[in-house]
Lab assay of single mutants.
Amino acid sequence: GLTEEQKQEIREAFDLFDTDGSGTIDAKELKVAMRALGFEPKKEEIKKMISEIDKDGSGTIDFEEFLTMMTA
């Protein structure tokens, strides 16, 4: 499992990506986040990433899903 410290770091990354503070990361926010990390993702790639992570089919990534992605 994760230490509380690791969870906190992932939470901070999540909050950075969640620019509108909605508690979820949408495609637009993910794209901005990827760019910040030096990637140039295409729209299809973003969609694919979200569909792989987005277990509940909401079209957005919540913290639990993000946590799973970061620790996979």
Rank of each mutant, 00 (worst) to 15 (best):
G1K: 09
L2N: 03
L2R: 03
L2W: 12
T3K: 04
T3N: 04
E4S: 12
E4L: 10
E4I: 08
E5K: 09
Q6L: 12
Q6E: 06
K7T: 06
K7Q: 08
Q8N: 09
Q8H: 11
I10L: 12
R11P: 00
A13M: 12
A13N: 02
D15G: 05
D15E: 07
D15T: 07
D15N: 13
D15Q: 09
F17K: 01
F17L: 09
F17V: 15
D18T: 09
D18R: 05
S22K: 06
G23I: 01
G23V: 01
T24Q: 06
D26H: 10
D26K: 08
A27V: 14
A27W: 15
L30V: 09
L30R: 00
L30D: 00
A33P: 01
A33K: 02
A33F: 14
A33H: 02
M34H: 00
M34C: 07
R35H: 13
R35M: 14
R35K: 14
A36C: 15
A36N: 07
A36Q: 11
L37Y: 04
G38M: 03
F39A: 02
F39R: 04
F39W: 14
E40L: 07
E40K: 12
P41M: 14
E44Y: 05
E44L: 03
E44F: 06
K47P: 04
K47I: 13
K47L: 13
K47D: 15
I50F: 14
S51A: 14
E52G: 09
I53Q: 04
I53H: 11
D54Y: 10
D54G: 13
D54W: 08
D54L: 07
K55Y: 04
K55M: 09
K55E: 05
G57E: 12
G57V: 05
S58W: 06
G59M: 11
G59W: 12
G59C: 09
T60P: 03
T60I: 07
D62P: 03
D62Q: 06
F63I: 04
F63K: 01
F63A: 01
F63D: 00
E64S: 07
E64P: 04
E65K: 14
F66D: 00
L67H: 01
T68S: 11
M69E: 01
M69N: 01
M70K: 00
T71F: 10
A72N: 10
A72G: 12
